[in-house]
Design a protein around this nucleic acid. Structure first.
Lengths: 149, 149
DNA sequence: AAAGATTGATGCCTCAATCTTG
DNA sequence: CAAGATTGAGGCATCAATCTTT
């Protein structure tokens, strides 16, 4: 890494750490939800029947199956989601958004969006934002494509 | 957020999560060090006397003082650093890189640099990398400047 | 044996409380 | 009381082991 790359890499490392922390704090303070929980709610809300298999959910969120199980277990205790085994393949488990979970998401979404604007979108130019989107798409694809992961 | 912004934000969120995870895994697998530990070693190695106050270290790393204390405590158990109270202000604590810690860093650095290249620098263009650096510098500055943090 | 999911142990992070020095 | 740092408790993530179904 040359000195320019080194500076860029440090800014990136610092910036992403701060951004994640700030978004997590904003959400937690405004809604009582963690980022992980919020993301689960979002994904479930985007399906026609507001439910999804645990394995699909884990893949979309880039969480390990174990991590997702723990998170969903806690969310189930809070009444935000419910689980039942899937039809057809009895190995699978379906995770479904409850009405209470949906209400919670509806209340939380504007808080989170405002936070993303304030911390990210409003801070950089639209051109920069476009480059970030493209670059991280490639970065993510490269990592997921990697057999050694 | 319009639909373009939404896509960009999702790519960014997913990409940063995957990148952090991959870099952590690469480092852990190749050196036995966590990213947090590695960063502590790096910062200490960059000072003339290979030592730094706990509070300065915490600020540079964007870690809470508490988190840094725990991390340094574990590193001290491994013999990578040592602590002693500072001259002049007896409230302060100086954290110093041991010879063993320095050796460990020297061995780990090439592994980490190769990982950063493979996962990030070699995957996007120099222009994209430059934009990432600038953008995240602004993002980070904005968050640290925020009184409500 | 492989896929889907869960469990429990361990480790790290966060938060609030505490201690010491200025 | 404020600043620097530490402590312990509780929460979440990770890892390996386990269970069930295919």
């Amino acid at each position: 890494l040359d000195s320019a790359q080194q500076r860029q890499w440090r800014s990136l490392a610092r910036g992403t750490a701060l951004l994640l922390e700030a978004l997590g704090r904003d959400l937690e303070a405004g809604t009582g939800l963690s980022l992980s929980e919020y993301e689960v709610l979002v994904r479930l809300s985007e399906t026609p029947d507001r439910s999804m298999r645990m394995s699909s959910l884990a893949d979309q969120l880039v969480h390990s199956r174990s991590r997702l199980t723990h998170t969903v277990r806690r969310m189930e205790d809070q009444g935000l989601v419910s689980r039942c085994s899937t039809e057809g393949d009895r190995r699978g488990v379906n995770c479904t958004l409850t009405d209470a979970g949906y209400e919670r998401l509806v209340a939380a979404a504007p808080v989170h969006v405002a936070s993303v604007r304030r911390r990210l979108v409003d801070v950089i130019s639209a051109e920069q934002m476009a480059v970030l989107g493209e670059a991280f798409e490639v970065i993510g694809d490269e990592i997921t494509a990697d057999p050694s992961r």
